[in-house]
Simulated scan of single mutants.
Amino acid sequence: MPAFNNDTIIILGEEIPMGASKEINFNIAKLHTGTNIEIPIIIERAKTPGPTILFTAGIHGDEINGVDIVRQLITRKINKPKRGTIICMPILNIFGFLNSNRAFPDGRDLNRMFPGSANGSLASRVAHRLMNEIIPEVDLIVDFHTGGASRFNAAQIRIVKDHPELDELARIFGAPFVLYSDHIAKTFRNACFQLGKPILLYEGGKSFYVDNLISKIGVEGVKRLLDHYGMLNPRIKASTPKRSTIFIEDSTWIRARQSGMFKPLININTKVTVNTILGQITDPYGKVYNEVKSTIDGYIINVNEASLVYQGDALFHITKQIKE
């Protein structure tokens, strides 16, 4: 990442000089009552030139653990850089967040609408403004997500394979796992990457839930990244990860062989071997008892915490091929 010395950046048409603290409202639409819906963008610029890093969360309205992480960056003043610029957008999908819904009011998944259109659907217009009026000023993006529905994700960074710069940034972040994941068309990650903007996608926890450990790993990872770029405020210290990051080159799902009441018996992050008992499926009448066993050696990186499952439901995500 090159050193930047721009005196002024322009976000949503507003000029922000070096050394400024600014909150800009990303005005995207109005409710049926005429009430404005705005997304606050918190911008902190040091007086010394440096990179511009954007932290985003809440692209899905039900993924509030990421919102908590970006909130902590602001409340703990981690977002006040020693040099360069830090931009925080805690909630991209404010509609979904307010309505406890993953999607936009038009039923669309914002994370399948990029790069968007100025004349498209509501979600598409939001994506278009983000990509055209904010991302051009940014040098690195960290986007925070959680697992969907009842599936609890281990803390992990997702990046595309064969890009050493992303490998290095993920290693610096220091999450327990890095999962190589191909880009999906029309996602925020893919759109940023197509513009040459490096992006780390952090996954951890599950929807509609805030897990303190997932938040802590995310916050500590951000501090390490900022320290790497010489941006971390001297009053804040970056920690060293307790163990080296494990890079996952392949993984597989263990699925339910029958429907029933499900109880996981093993914790996230656990290393298992073939035939390790992972959980059990029973019926309400005491006639069925089925043990769910691992078919491979690996680490558990996702656990389905649903109490009721159907045949074929994904229960455990296990690493299949790793490099440490």
Score class of each variant (00 low, 15 high):
Leu213Thr: 06
Ala191Gly: 10
Asn111Arg: 05
Val160His: 12
Lys77Ile: 02
Ala306Trp: 05
Pro198Lys: 12
Val178Ser: 09
Gly116Glu: 05
Glu137Pro: 06
Gly204Asp: 01
Glu203Leu: 01
Val210His: 11
Asn93Gln: 11
Asp227Glu: 10
Glu137Asp: 04
Arg108His: 13
Tyr285Pro: 00
Val67Thr: 04
Ile236Gln: 04
Met113Leu: 13
Gln280Cys: 00
Lys47Asn: 12
Phe247Lys: 07
Leu169Pro: 08
Ser307Glu: 14
Ala118Tyr: 01
Pro90Gln: 10
Pro136Thr: 08
Asn190Pro: 02
Thr52Asp: 14
Ala3Lys: 01
Asp106Met: 03
His60Ile: 07
Ser259Arg: 00
Asp143Pro: 01
Phe144Asp: 08
Ala314Gly: 15
Asn101Ile: 03
Ala175Gln: 08
Val274Ala: 08
Ile248His: 02
Met261Cys: 04
Glu324Cys: 04
Glu220Met: 04
Arg171Lys: 15
Met261His: 05
His60Glu: 09
Ile296Cys: 04
Cys192Ser: 15
Pro164Ala: 04
Tyr180His: 07
Glu14Tyr: 03
Pro234Asn: 06
Thr75Phe: 10
Glu291Arg: 13
Leu122Pro: 00
Lys271Trp: 05
Ala306Cys: 08
Asp62Ala: 14
Leu201Trp: 01
Phe26Met: 02
Gln258Tyr: 05
Leu140Ser: 05
Val70Gly: 07
Gly298Glu: 10
Arg189His: 03
Gly147Arg: 10
Ile199Ala: 10
Thr240Asp: 12
Met1Trp: 00
Tyr310Ser: 15
Tyr285Phe: 15
Ile69Asn: 11
Ile214Val: 14
Val222Gly: 04
Pro115Asn: 11
Tyr180Trp: 00
Leu122Arg: 08
Thr146Leu: 04
Gly116Arg: 00
Gly230Ala: 08
Val309Pro: 02
Asn212Met: 06
Leu232Arg: 03
Asp313Asn: 15
Ala314Cys: 13
Arg189Pro: 05
Pro264Asn: 09
Asp143Tyr: 02
Glu14Met: 07
Arg102Asn: 00
Leu201Met: 05
Met231Trp: 03
Gly96Ser: 03
Val160Ala: 13
Gly312Pro: 01
Leu54Val: 13
Ala155Pro: 08
Arg83Met: 00
Gly61Arg: 11
Ile172Cys: 11
Val178Asn: 09
Ile10Phe: 04
Ile78Val: 12
Asn5Phe: 10
Ala46Val: 00
Arg257Gly: 15
Ser215Thr: 00
Glu324Trp: 06
Gly107Lys: 06
Arg151Trp: 00
Phe208Ala: 13
Ile64Lys: 08
Gly196Ser: 03
Thr276Met: 11
Ile277Phe: 09
Lys293Val: 09
Asp7Ile: 00
Leu179His: 06
Arg45Ile: 06
His317Tyr: 12
Ile172Ala: 12
Asn79Ile: 07
Glu23Arg: 15
Thr56Ile: 03
Thr146Tyr: 02
Met89Lys: 10
Thr295Lys: 15
Arg45Met: 07
Phe4Asp: 13
Gly61Glu: 10
Ser21Phe: 13
Thr252His: 12
Leu213Phe: 06
Cys192Lys: 11
Ser124Pro: 01
Gly204Ser: 05
Leu200Arg: 03
Tyr229Met: 07
Glu249Ala: 03
Ser259Pro: 06
Glu133Ile: 06
